[in-house]
Amino acid sequence: MIARAFTEFTILRLKKPAVAVALLVAAFASLAAHPHVWIDGFVEVRVDDSRIAAVRAHWTFDPFFSEMIVLDFGPVSNGTFTDRQIEAIRRNAFDNLRHYSYFTSLEINGRKIPVEQVERFRASITEEGFLRYSFDIPINASLSGQSTTVRIAMYDESYFTDIVFERNYARVLTEGIAPRRYRKRLLSEQHIIPVWGPVTREVVEIVFEN
């Protein structure tokens, strides 16, 4: 009797809204936004005697965004912005990314490292004429145990920006010591972003052998 009443209510009385809700849910699944800015990235991991000092990220933007920044912040001489222009770019077209953790997810040995501040921001124009941002993410994590695994993912959860790693996606820079042994690989992972749903992100994994 309950099943009959429920069926009558849903199918016979609310037929159209039920169909509407079902299709709405399907459409809702695709509500996520699409990219409007594209970035090609690579990272440099700086290590010294006993610690991982920092990760330096390099982002190369698409031509449209590059041209917009040049239009906004002034002409470029020999691919170089002045210090004043760089400061203006940092304040007006970069600092806001702190609300998005600078699009960076960082893990060391499975422990997530919050990305709340960056240092040494630079803006430049590549030889091909594209805008490049470079900045340090300070880490100061010790290299201990048999190995240390660093995982770096760069993606925009709002999906306004699409970030992929370049062919030469990572380098390790050693300071003051003999080069460390390490293995690196670029992984493609899928996970669910709140609201937007399943997305593919690229993750750089570097395993330092201590």
Binding site: H34, P35, W38, D62, P63, F64, E67, D162, V164, Q190, H191, I192, G197, P198, V199, T200
Partner: peptide, 30 residues
């Protein structure tokens, strides 16, 4: 982190491919 279902993985892969094509067209247009 939550992991997507099989349908979700297919959707994510398709979106990734289309985003890549857009990236190429963006460059060609510019």
């Amino acid at each position: 982190p939550r992991r997507p279902s099989a349908v979700g993985r297919i959707t994510a892969d398709a979106a990734r491919a289309i985003a890549g094509w857009q990236r190429d067209l963006n460059h060609r247009l510019a």
